[in-house]
Simulated assay, not measured.
Amino acid sequence: MELDCIGITDLLDDGIMISERDTIIYVNKSLSTLADIDGTESAFSSFKAYISRYASDPDLIDAEVSTALQTASPLLHRQMHLSYPSGEERWIELTLKTIDLNRTLWIFRGITRWKRAEEILRESEEKYRLLFHGGYDAVVVYSLHQSGLPLSFIEVNDVACRRLGYDRQELLSRSPLDIIPPDQIGKLLRTIKQLLVTDHLLFETEQIRSDGSTLAVEINAHRFQLRDQIVVLSVSRDISERKAHEEMQRKAYQQIEMNIEQFAILGDHIRNPLAVILGYAECGDEVIASKIREQNGIIRGYLDQLDRGWIESEKVREFLRRHYR
């Protein structure tokens, strides 16, 4: 009856071997395919020959299995990496359990598929880390309540932590509303609520660092579904330098506008007193009046040049209005 029950193991994908002391008394069909052990030699000799040919760490496995057999203690889920001459690589998980004082159960489980899946997952995680942490922009992920209220961050990258001055756990305990100036919270809420009806937003705002200072940012927000949650991936770019440059341009333009306005009235400010001087000259000595008229003509020539310059300045102003306002 016992052997009939043991025979059921031929239906399993796992390789099964039972040894009594060091004699193999049973090997199922899967074992010869999985681990190249056919039961013609002693149990430990067969296993040792197998691992010495193919295992990447045969001496260590040998020592662990020897200890388990000598002490009758279990060896659980010992993973073995095997390389075959054909170039094929396999992973096998070995478990040893004592059935009674003399008999030992050997279970060989093929885990190559699992290990490959782990490797693919590891590579995917590494690519994710490179993309998430390797850029120059701050990236945060937070869930969005069905009312449109942004909830706590569920992921943040290294740039976000450095830029805002928090360690990762501190930042994860906050939400987008905690890093916005109080006077902009209402505007941010109205903006984020739009993500309930659209899957992408691009907008500018300010953020508060842990030391209370602010920085201007441009936020590129994408909404997506993660299991049963609405989630927002928010990429923020520091635009402080750009804003400072824009402010310099604005002030320079204002100054140019003022200069042009002054330029426009400068001629009148000069012509009016010049006409008075010329009128007084006509009442005096002709020689002096002649000299004054001559200098008056020179000054009017300069004023004509100022008028022409004002026309050119108007062209400059129109250009600035079109391209920099």
Rank of each mutant, 00 (worst) to 15 (best):
L215Q: 09
G212R: 04
L215T: 12
L201Y: 13
P273N: 05
K48S: 07
E126C: 04
K97Y: 12
Q225W: 11
I277L: 15
H200K: 11
L171F: 05
E119G: 05
I154R: 12
P176D: 06
V197L: 05
L320I: 10
D10G: 06
S46V: 00
N102F: 12
Y50N: 02
I24N: 00
H77M: 02
S234C: 15
P273E: 04
E64G: 01
I192H: 02
T67K: 15
I219E: 12
Q229H: 13
D36S: 12
I107M: 14
L101Q: 13
V141S: 02
G110Q: 09
G39T: 11
I92F: 06
L188A: 12
E312D: 10
V156E: 14
L171T: 01
V159C: 08
Q305A: 10
L215M: 15
N272I: 14
A49V: 03
D199L: 05
L131G: 06
L60W: 02
N157W: 00
V316S: 06
A43P: 00
I256L: 15
D100S: 09
S143V: 11
D183F: 05
S213G: 07
D199R: 11
Q249R: 09
K115W: 09
K315V: 05
I299S: 01
F108M: 06
A72I: 04
I107C: 12
S32I: 15
R190M: 07
V140M: 13
S56C: 08
G134S: 00
A63Y: 03
C161F: 00
D211R: 09
L121F: 00
E125Y: 01
I270K: 01
S147A: 06
E155Q: 14
E257I: 09
R116T: 10
I51W: 15
A138Y: 02
L149G: 00
L303E: 03
Q225F: 12
I288C: 04
I99F: 15
F224S: 04
G148N: 10
L171V: 00
